[in-house]
Design a protein around this nucleic acid. Structure first.
Lengths: 126, 126
DNA sequence: TGTCATAGTATCATTTTTTATACTAAAGGA
DNA sequence: TCCTTTAGTATAAAAAATGATACTATGACA
């Protein structure tokens, strides 16, 4: 097998051991990819996102959104209203991540069933 | 924007809120994607992998490999030799993850430079 | 005047992840 | 006999991520 269809000749480490590690620095962690997945469809309000990602706390959602914003992945639009309205959306830079998210989405659709069954098998052996 | 080119009609949650979350359950975390990236090229011995993933400790490498093996993603081949020789490789199921890893690789190659610069900018503002 | 909704923040506790360090077996070679 | 190598394991500690809970501002509305 050969991986050299990828041109790593220009790759400068920047403190990362490989490009995958660098990518993970942006979308790694428990929540970011899921958040980005929901943003593919367009802008979403804070509470709407909270509802779409069950299990996340308000605090974690805020923290992750702040980091994504800091890295230029998402845009935060504040409407001067009461009660407040804040909409999050992908920036055009953030949109470059869509192929990754979609490949994760596809894999999940295709293989989750198998994984779940596999783990149930493993449980029996305990 | 419309995301319905993805057929989620057959998606059963299995305790996951979306397919992306399920995928993350398999390849999430700091090390797994990087390990899988190196395994794309073919089987690798334990110590070789340790060298390819600088920063990982022996313990973490073992833990991550055990989980990937448990989930059917990699195969562990033990050679009866002294000193020991153990080779890790992707299973055919593990190979279904290659598109995800490659998209992460590509993104890293293309955009790491920009991210690093962006963060340096942010530092100045402190 | 009291209540509601939104999008948060603050504080502290807990859990999970990760690290550091030392230790092991077993065969071959000096 | 001692040293080397590989692929680990064991134990404890530290660090990072995550969670629970309470709190806030503001204007509209009853």
């Amino acid at each position: 097998m050969n991986n050299q269809q990828f041109d790593l000749s220009n790759w400068q480490s920047h403190g990362y051991s490989c490009p995958v590690e660098a990518t993970l620095d942006i979308i790694g962690g428990k929540w970011k990819s899921v958040i980005l997945y929901h943003l593919i469809d367009g802008e979403i309000r804070f509470n709407e996102l909270k509802r779409l990602v069950p299990g996340i706390t308000q605090r974690m959602l805020t923290l992750q959104l702040r980091e994504l914003e800091r890295d230029g992945i998402i845009h935060r639009e504040v409407y001067k209203q009461v009660p407040p309205k804040v909409e999050y959306s992908l920036t055009s830079f953030g949109e470059t991540l869509i192929p990754i998210i979609k490949s994760m989405l596809h894999w999940g659709i295709e293989h989750t069933e198998k994984i779940v069954q596999h783990r149930e098998q493993a449980e029996v052996k305990d």
